[in-house]
Nucleic acid binder design. Structure first.
Lengths: 357, 357
DNA sequence: GTTCGTTGCTAAATCGGGTTAGCAGGCCGC
DNA sequence: GCGGCCTGCTAACCCGATTTAGCAACGAAC
C-alpha cells in the first residue's frame, strides 16, 4: 500500500551526508554549526525532491510531546453546542500546529479515567475537560500529569485548573435589560426556573446564574418578577406545560424563557391562547440555538458563545503549557466569556412605553 | 509537573530482571519462552505496583502504527449531524482501543491536504473522509498512504475507496409509501426539489436520490406527483417561500418535504393559509432533525442514521486495515445504511381512504 | 616541528518499547 | 569426558529524529 515513508536517513543518503548533518541543516542550525553552503544546498534539495516530512511520532518519543491536545467531553452529540465548541478548539489548536483527540465519557467516571489514560499513553500535551451543559464536575485524579483546563464546567473541589465558562450572570442581566429597554415594567414572567434561586433544574449552574443576573438587573430598575414557572428539565414538553399552566391564571406582558427550546414551546402555548408574539407578549431567551432564527417571529436570545468558548479554552490551555508548572499565580482562575444578545423580532416596546413616548 | 512516566525499565529493575524478560512476561509470551513462575510473578507484581502502562508512542515508532484513526470532515459544526456521526465512529473506534483525531477542512482543498499530511505525520492507521451533506467529492491524492473510507460522500472519479452513505433512494420510497399506506392518491406535492430530476439544489446527491425513490414508489402505485416546488437551498426561508407559492394556486392533500427545516417552514405556511396538519394536509419529511419532535404535530420523517453511518464507516475502515492491501475484490464498494421511518403525528389517512373503509 | 585553533563534518547515545539471536548452566546419554 | 539438549534468561539491535561529544584535516603561530 504505502511505499514507506521518507526518513531523514533517506535524505542524508541522497545528499551524501550523515543523518546528523541532514538534521542540522533541516532544523536551521546549519549556519551555527558551520555546515558549508554546498552541503546545505544538497540536503535541502534532497529533502525537497523526496518530499521529506519529519515523523512526529519519533520526535515525540524523544521529547515526550506529541503536538496533540485531548478533548474529553461528557457528550458530543447533543445539539450543535458541542460542534461549535470543538470547532473553536480545533481552529485554535490548528493555528499552533496541534491536532485534537476527541473522547466522550457519557458521564461515566470509569470511562473518563480510561480515556484520559489512553490519551496519556499517546503523550498528549494537554487536556480540555468539557461539559456539554454548564455544571460543576468532579475533577478526575488522572489529569494531574499534564496541563488541563475545564470547559463549561466548574470544579466541585478546589483545584489549580483554570475554568472557562460563559458569563451567565451577565447574560441574565442582558436578557432582563432587553425587556427593560423596551419599556417593560410589569407582567414579566420567567419560564424554566425561578422565582427563587432554588427553583432550578438539578445540577444546572446556568439556571442559577441566569436567574441571579435577571433578578439583579430587574431589581436595579425597581422592577419585580411577576411570577415564574420552573421546569424539571429544559425540554420543549416541559416548557409547553409550564407556559400553559401560567397562561391559565395570568396574562403576561413578557416572558424570559431559560432556553430556546422552552421559548419555542412557549410560542406554541401562547398561540394556543390566541396571544401574539411580540404584540401581546414579548419573549426573550437564551442559547441562540439554530431554531431561534427559524421560528416566527425570530427569537431575541442571549447567545451561548460556543465557538469562542472552545477557542478560549485552547488559548488558556496553551498558556498553561507554556508556563509549564512555574508560578501558580493564576492557578484555578475562572475565565468568563461574554454572551452576546441577538436582537431579533420577539420583543416589542411595552404599550406603556409607547404611551410615554 | 509529572513525576515522569513509569517505563518498562523501571518495572524490570523493580523485579530484578532484564527489560527483555519484563517485556516477554507483560506481552504474555512468558510461558512460550519458558520464563519461570517466580520471575513472572515478580514482574507482574512490579508492573502492578508501579502502575506501569506501555507508552503507545514508542510502540508506534517501531511498528509504524498509532492505534489512531483520523476523521477528516468538511464541517463539524453544522447541526448535530456531525456530532452523531462522530459519536458512532468514536464508539466503534473505542471498542477496538483506537482513538480519533478530528480535523475540519471547511471545504478548502489545501487545508484538507495539509490536514491529511499532519495526520500521516502522526502515523494514523486509517482515515475517514466525511462530508456533512451527501455529495460527490474529489478524493485528495494525499490519502493513498493509508487505508481510507468515504463517509456520506461518493468519489468524483473512480477510486478503490469504499464509501458509506445513507440509502436515500429507499428513503424516498419509504416517504412515499407512508402517504400511500395512509390512502393518499391525489394532491401529493413535493417541497424542496422536483418534479424533474434536474430540479434539485446544486451538488445535492441526497435530493436526486430521494426524488428517484419517491417517483419510483408513487409510480409503482400508479400515483402521479401533483406538483413540486424546488428550492435553491434547503433552508427554512426557502421552504416558507416555496410552500406559500404553492398554496397560492393549489390545495395539496399531502406534502413531501425534502428535509425537516423545510417541513417546519411548510407548517408555518400552512398555518398562514388556515390549513391544519394533518387533518387538511399530511406532511412527511426527511432527516429526523431534533426539531421534528419539537414541532406540533410531531413530524413523521425518514431519519438520517448519523450514528450508524459513523459506526459503519469505522467498521468498514477496520476491515480495510485488516486485509491490508490484499485482494481488491471489494475495492470501491458502496455501503448503504438504511434510513428508518419515524412515524409520528403529521400524517393522517386520506379522506378517500376512510371512505373506502 | 610541535601545538593550537578553526573548519566541517560524523559517530554514538537517547527516547521506550519489541524482537531476534544467543549465552550460561545443568542434565542426559554414550 | 564430551557432545547435545533443555531451561531460563539477557545482550543487542530496531524504529526515526535530535543532540552531544569529538574527529580529521588544514593553516598559522611560536
Amino acid at each position: 500500500m504505502s511505499p514507506r515513508r521518507v526518513t531523514l536517513a533517506d535524505v542524508a543518503k541522497a545528499a551524501g551526508v550523515s543523518r546528523t548533518t541532514a538534521s542540522l541543516v533541516l532544523s536551521g542550525r546549519g549556519r551555527e554549526l558551520r555546515i558549508s553552503q554546498d552541503v546545505e544546498q544538497r540536503v535541502l534539495k534532497a529533502a525537497e525532491e523526496l518530499q521529506y516530512r519529519p515523523n512526529i511520532v519519533s520526535v515525540g518519543l524523544r521529547t515526550g510531546t506529541s503536538r496533540t491536545i485531548g478533548f474529553v467531553s461528557d457528550t458530543i452529540a447533543t445539539s450543535r453546542l458541542a460542534g461549535d465548541m470543538i470547532k473553536g478548539a480545533l481552529e485554535a489548536a490548528r493555528d499552533r500546529g496541534f491536532m485534537l483527540f476527541i473522547g466522550e465519557t457519557e458521564g461515566d467516571a470509569e470511562l473518563e479515567s480510561l480515556l484520559i489514560q489512553a490519551m496519556h499513553d499517546r503523550q498528549v500535551d494537554g487536556l480540555i475537560l468539557a461539559s456539554m451543559f454548564t455544571r460543576t464536575i468532579k475533577v478526575p485524579k488522572a489529569i494531574t500529569a499534564v496541563p488541563a483546563v475545564l470547559l463549561n464546567a466548574l470544579p466541585k473541589q478546589p483545584t489549580p485548573l483554570p475554568a472557562i465558562l460563559p458569563d451567565e450572570v451577565e447574560a441574565g442581566r442582558r436578557a432582563a435589560r432587553v425587556l427593560l429597554d423596551a419599556g417593560h415594567r410589569d407582567g414579566i414572567y420567567l419560564i424554566g426556573a425561578g422565582p427563587g434561586l432554588r427553583d432550578v433544574p438539578a445540577e444546572s449552574l446556568a439556571a442559577v446564574e441566569r436567574l441571579v443576573g435577571i433578578r439583579e438587573a430587574l431589581g436595579e430598575a425597581g422592577v419585580k418578577v411577576a411570577g415564574a414557572r420552573a421546569c424539571p428539565d429544559w425540554q420543549p414538553e416541559h416548557g409547553l406545560a409550564a407556559t400553559r399552566d401560567l397562561l391559565k391564571t395570568a396574562r403576561p406582558r413578557a416572558l424570559i424563557c431559560f432556553n430556546d427550546r422552552i421559548a419555542m414551546a412557549a410560542y406554541q402555548a401562547l398561540d394556543d391562547f390566541g396571544l401574539k408574539v411580540p404584540a401581546d407578549v414579548s419573549v426573550v431567551s437564551f442559547d441562540d440555538h439554530p431554531i431561534a432564527s427559524w421560528v416566527r417571529p425570530k427569537l431575541t436570545t442571549v447567545a451561548l458563545p460556543h465557538y469562542e468558548l472552545g477557542r478560549k479554552a485552547m488559548d488558556v490551555l496553551f498558556t498553561e503549557i507554556e508556563r509549564d508548572g512555574s508560578d501558580t499565580e493564576e492557578a484555578g482562575q475562572v475565565h468568563r466569556v461574554p454572551m452576546p444578545v441577538r436582537d431579533r423580532e420577539s420583543v416589542a416596546p411595552s404599550p406603556i412605553a409607547e404611551f410615554l413616548d
